[in-house]
Design a binder for these strands. Structure first.
Length: 110
DNA sequence: GCTGTGACTCCTT
DNA sequence: AAAGGAGCCACAG
C-alpha cells in the first residue's frame, strides 16, 4: 500500500492546513515525519497536479511567499491567501514570528 | 555516476 | 535588520 509513501504523507499534511492559516515548508516536512526535507515539499507541490491541494498555504519559514516577489506565481498565491482570509503585510504573511525559538522550547518563557 | 539546480533553512557577519 | 555562506535532499542532464 502507498500509505507509507512519504510523499503522500507530505501532501496529506498540506491538505490538513486549515483555511486561513499557513505552514512553513520545514514545518510541513517535520509534521510528515521528514525533518530537513523542506525542499522536497516544494518540489512535491510543484509536481502535484491536484487542483484541490492548498499549496498556497505553504510559505517559507520567514512567512514570505517562496516565489520571486511580483512574479505571476507570487501574485497567484497572494490572491489565494487573501481569499482564505490571510492578511499580507509587505509581501509577508501575518504570522506570529517564525513559530518559536528552541530556547523557549527547552528553557520555557522567562 | 558526477555536476548543477532549486516553491528551503540555519548560522554567522 | 539585512546580507552572505554553508548544509541539506531529490531530480535532470
Amino acid at each position: 500500500m502507498a500509505a507509507g509513501d512519504p510523499a503522500d504523507r507530505i501532501l496529506a499534511v498540506v491538505r490538513a492546513i486549515p483555511r486561513g492559516e499557513v505552514a512553513g515548508y520545514g514545518e510541513v516536512a517535520r509534521r510528515a515525519g521528514l525533518p530537513g526535507r523542506a525542499r522536497w515539499v516544494a518540489r512535491l507541490l510543484a509536481a502535484s497536479d491536484d487542483p484541490a491541494l492548498p499549496w498556497h498555504r505553504v510559505v517559507r519559514s520567514d512567512g514570505r511567499i517562496a516565489f520571486p516577489a511580483g512574479s505571476e506565481a507570487w501574485r497567484e498565491q497572494a490572491r489565494r491567501l487573501g481569499a482564505d482570509g490571510v492578511r499580507l503585510a509587505g509581501g509577508r504573511v501575518r504570522v506570529a514570528r517564525t513559530e518559536h525559538s528552541l530556547d523557549a522550547e527547552v528553557w520555557g518563557p522567562a
